[in-house]
Simulated scan of single mutants.
Amino acid sequence: MGEKEAGQMAKTLRRAAAFSALGKALFAGARGGPSLGKRLAALPRMLKATAKGEYDGGMRVALMVAATAYVASPVDVVPELFLALFGLADDALMVAWLAGSVLSETERFIEWEQRRAAVIPGHVVT
C-alpha cells in the first residue's frame, strides 16, 4: 500500500470514528443514558469544573474549544469560496466530531458528578 492510499485510509477511519461517536452519543438516551437536554445542561458545569481543576477533562475540553474555533474562524471562509463542497466537507466533519465529542464527554461528566455525589465527606479512621 502506498503512502497516498494509507493517508486516504486514515482519513476514512477518522471520519468513521467521528460519525460513530456522534451516533453512539445521540442514541445513548434511548438505551438509558442521559437525555440530550441533560447533556447540554451539564456543559456549563463541566466547563466550570474543568477550569477549577476538579474534573479531568482539560485536554478533551481544549480540543472541543479548538474545533469550535476552527469551524467559526473567518480564516476558513476563503477555502470554501474557492473549493466549494470540498471546503465545506472539512467543516462538516469537524462539526460531526465536535457534536459526538461534546455528547460523549458530557455523558462522562454526568457519570463523574454522580460518583462524586455518592461519596460521603469525612475522615477515614484507622
Rank of each mutant, 00 (worst) to 15 (best):
M64Y: 00
S73L: 03
E54T: 08
R60P: 01
L83M: 14
A66Y: 06
K52A: 15
A41I: 10
F82L: 06
F82N: 00
A41T: 08
P44L: 08
L83C: 06
A72K: 08
L81T: 03
S73W: 02
F82H: 03
R60H: 07
A67V: 04
A49S: 13
L43N: 07
M46Q: 01
V71F: 08
D76N: 15
A51R: 15
L83A: 12
Y55L: 02
V78E: 02
A49G: 02
P79H: 06
A42C: 03
D56T: 03
L83V: 10
M46R: 06
E80C: 02
A51D: 07
S73T: 07
V61P: 00
V78T: 13
V78A: 15
A41D: 12
G58Y: 03
M64Q: 13
A51N: 11
R45C: 00
G57W: 00
A41R: 15
L43F: 15
R60F: 06
K52W: 01
L47E: 07
P44I: 08
V77P: 00
R60A: 13
A62E: 09
E54G: 04
T50P: 03
A41P: 02
R45N: 07
V61H: 09
A84M: 03
A72W: 00
F82A: 02
M64T: 08
R60I: 13
A69N: 12
V78R: 12
Y55C: 00
V78D: 05
V77K: 14
K52S: 15
A66G: 14
L43D: 05
V77A: 14
T68A: 13
A67K: 07
V78N: 05
M64W: 01
D56F: 09
